[in-house]
């Protein structure tokens, strides 16, 4: 008994005063992923990387809206979303106090407008993403009025059609495709 008391005095109090006092988390602690809507371009890199599919991105082409959703109840706090995010829109914080009385409170959602194709008027990609790509390519030295700007405003299908129309011109010159001449 005395031996035990001696030990107790030596060690002192180890219990944290947690709810009254903050707990210091280790550097690099992976807590609640915080989403910054103003930086998100809805590229879907996080949704592709997320191992448990806690992050999902769905495009509703009828309404023209991409819906991004993060389910904290499914998140495993691995930090892959932070790793792949090109704009730093999602970052893991120190916050671990996520307990909730309702399942509904564990969701974070965002709706981002899609952009219409210039040719066929169908929604095809988040407007933010297209504008971001444009700004990045402009910054990389592409000229401000190049052909790439038109390509960027078209949906993949129209882009393919356009290329299919251009190829004979590239191969046989502007009057190509009339046949016979080169055969």
């Amino acid at each position: 008994m005395l031996k035990l008391l001696k030990k107790v005095v030596q060690v002192g109090e180890v219990t944290t005063r947690y709810p009254q006092q903050r707990v210091e988390v280790a550097p690099g602690f992976r807590g609640k992923p915080v989403y910054d809507f103003s930086r998100c371009v809805a590229c879907g890199a996080c949704a592709t990387a997320c191992p448990p599919n806690a992050i999902t991105l769905q495009q509703d082409r009828e309404r023209g809206v991409a819906t991004w959703q993060l389910d904290y109840g499914r998140c495993i706090f691995c930090g892959r979303c932070e790793e792949v995010c090109p704009t730093g829109a999602i970052q893991l914080s120190d916050d671990f106090e996520l307990a909730s009385l309702s399942r509904d409170d564990l969701f974070s959602t965002a709706e981002i407008q899609l952009m219409q194709c210039e040719t066929c008027q169908q929604y095809f990609a988040p407007g933010r993403e297209v504008q971001y790509v444009r700004a990045r390519l402009g910054g990389a030295g592409l000229s401000e009025n190049g052909r790439w700007l038109q390509v960027l405003r078209q949906c993949p299908r129209c882009r393919r059609r356009r290329t299919a129309r251009i190829i004979p011109h590239l191969a046989y010159g502007p009057r190509g495709g009339k046949g016979g001449k080169r055969a």
């Binding site: 609640k32 989403y35 809507f37 904290y72 916050d95 106090e97 996520l98 307990a99 909730s100 009385l101 509904d104 409170d105 564990l106 969701f107 974070s108 959602t109 965002a110 709706e111 981002i112 407008q113 952009m115 988040p126 407007g127 933010r128 504008q131």
Partner: peptide, 13 residues
Amino acid sequence: QKIRRQEHAEKAT
């Protein structure tokens, strides 16, 4: 409880 449901939306791009 600290966490609340978050919803964001944009009207135009």
